[in-house]
């Protein structure tokens, strides 16, 4: 299964900055990026292995493509690259309906990881009432599993507080990350493997996040697990884990912002192992401890 992420956000929200960071910083994961326009990204020439009109192959194993035909054809082509990518990241156009695009991630060979929507702290409130793009901007934010409130350095603390209040009340449930210059640990946003093995995270990113772990030697029930993940605070950016059931197959837990899934998988877990991560500045681990105790009594 190839993981699939959609990055949305209105003009100026910082999608390009984030894409550049993915392409240039990540090592080890073969990302395939489907972006709007080569003109907007800025890839170091030394990183370019080969290039055609619609595809750039990077020395770090990543591939970057632009959309020339429909999304379906483009995604299909990416899936058939040799070697196949591990994770497809689609940049939505500034006015795209990201929830519709995300549906491609439910195709049989893909696994939808999440929908990330960037918002420009300076302009998002105004755009959300704009004559032309109000519904577009609101629809994008409503579809987000994680909202990245970017360019927070450009607004006063008071304004920032207002933006956060507005976003959390208007689009409840989504995880909200505040950042400047799109500086979110990209491995946290995209790389589920790295996120589960914190030591693999880049040193620079390392400072920003905190990991919370929960291990239990007894099996559980689906109901208990559902109760647990549905009550996770929105400051959890990602969580992943496995659990054995008292009866029945094992359960896989995946959380990306407000996207929370439990799936039955094959395995022979006897207990529970769940890891959650969030930003150090936002995630209060004692809330998770309390939740664990309430749900699992330990």
């Amino acid at each position: 299964m190839i993981r699939f992420t959609v990055i949305g956000g209105y003009l100026g929200a910082g999608k390009t900055t984030l894409l550049n960071r993915i392409l240039t910083k990540e090592k080890g994961v073969r990302y395939a990026l489907l972006i709007n326009d080569f003109g907007e990204i800025n890839i170091d020439a030394k990183l370019i292995e080969s290039q055609t009109d619609s595809q750039i192959n990077l020395t770090n194993g990543c591939v970057c493509c632009t959309l020339v035909d429909g999304f379906h054809d483009a995604i299909d082509q990416l899936c058939h690259l040799q070697p196949p990518p591990e994770h497809i990241i689609v940049e939505a156009s500034g006015v795209a309906d990201v929830s519709n695009l995300a549906q491609y991630g439910y195709a049989p060979n893909l696994a939808l990881d999440g929908v990330l929507v960037l918002a420009d702290a300076e302009t998002v409130r105004e755009k959300a009432d704009d004559k032309y793009v109000a519904t577009t901007v609101r629809r994008q934010l409503a579809a987000a599993d994680i909202i990245i409130l970017n360019k927070t350095d450009l607004v006063s603390e008071e304004t920032l507080g207002k933006r956060i209040d507005w976003l959390t009340t208007t689009f409840p449930g989504a995880t909200l990350i505040n950042t400047e210059f799109g500086e979110v640990p990209t491995s946290l946003l995209f790389d589920v493997h790295a996120a589960m093995k914190p030591d693999d995270l880049h040193q620079a990113d390392h400072e920003h996040y905190v990991t919370w772990k929960f291990e239990l030697s007894q099996p559980t029930t689906r109901e208990a697990l559902e109760g647990f993940i549905s009550q996770l605070p929105t400051t959890v950016i990602r969580a992943k884990g496995f659990a054995g059931q008292v009866s029945g197959s094992d359960l896989l837990v995946q959380v990306v912002g407000k996207r929370r899934e439990i799936r039955e998988v094959e395995g022979n877990q006897t207990g529970i192992l769940i890891t959650a991560i969030g930003l150090e500045s936002q995630l209060d681990c004692s809330i998770l401890d309390d939740l664990r105790e309430r749900v699992f009594g330990t």
């Binding site: 429909g70 999304f71 379906h72 929830s99 695009l101 549906q103 439910y106 195709a107």
Partner: peptide, 24 residues
């Protein structure tokens, strides 16, 4: 789980495919 897959009350597919992610 593609949203555009039409379903009946029991969740069975009813053959309607809405928007390209389902149609394709």
């Amino acid at each position: 789980r593609v949203e555009g897959l039409g379903r009946d009350a029991e969740g069975e597919l009813d053959g309607e495919l809405r928007e390209p992610p389902a149609m394709t």
